[in-house]
Amino acid sequence: MKSINAPLAAQVLELLANDRVAVGSHLAAQNLADRLGVSRSPVNDALRLLQAKGLLTREPNRGYFLAQPVALEVSRLRDELARDEPDVVTRSYFQLADDRLRGEVPDAFSEVWLKNRYGLTPAQVTALLGRMTQEGWVQKKAGYGWAFSPMLTTPDSLLQSYRLRLALEPAALLEPGYRLDPDLLARCRTAEHHLLDGGIETDTPDQLHDRGVRFHESIVEGSGNPFFIDTIRRVNRVRRLLSYRSMKDRARYEQHCRQHLHVLDLIEQQRLQDAAEALREHLGHTLDNLGRIRNILTP
Rank of each mutant, 00 (worst) to 15 (best):
Y64Q: 02
A82D: 07
L13V: 05
D197H: 08
Q95Y: 02
S223I: 04
A191L: 05
E59A: 15
P106E: 04
T202L: 10
R20G: 07
Q139R: 15
Q11C: 10
G177L: 07
R239K: 03
T204N: 02
P176V: 11
P299M: 09
D230E: 12
R294V: 04
A9S: 10
T298D: 12
G212V: 06
E73T: 15
F227L: 15
L16R: 02
N225Y: 00
D203V: 06
A108S: 14
G198A: 01
A22E: 14
T133Y: 03
L242T: 00
R252P: 00
Q134W: 14
D274F: 10
R163N: 13
F94N: 06
I296Y: 05
E281N: 09
R239I: 13
A167M: 14
W146Q: 04
G119S: 04
R240C: 00
R58L: 14
R100I: 06
P106C: 10
F94R: 05
L49G: 10
D197Q: 11
E73R: 08
R234W: 03
Q273G: 12
T126E: 13
I296G: 00
G24A: 05
A172S: 14
Q270G: 05
P42W: 04
D87F: 07
L49R: 01
H216T: 03
L164R: 12
Q269N: 11
R294C: 01
R214F: 08
R294E: 09
Q160W: 10
H262N: 13
R233I: 03
D288G: 11
Y178A: 09
T133W: 02
L8T: 05
L56Y: 09
D197I: 02
A82K: 03
A186D: 12
S110Y: 08
R294Q: 08
V238M: 12
P150L: 04
D45Q: 12
L242I: 01
K53G: 14
L195F: 04
N31H: 15
L174H: 05
D84H: 05
W146N: 00
Q255N: 06
T231M: 14
E85D: 12
D265C: 11
G212T: 00
M151N: 13
D210H: 08
S39G: 15
T231K: 12
Q11G: 07
V263F: 01
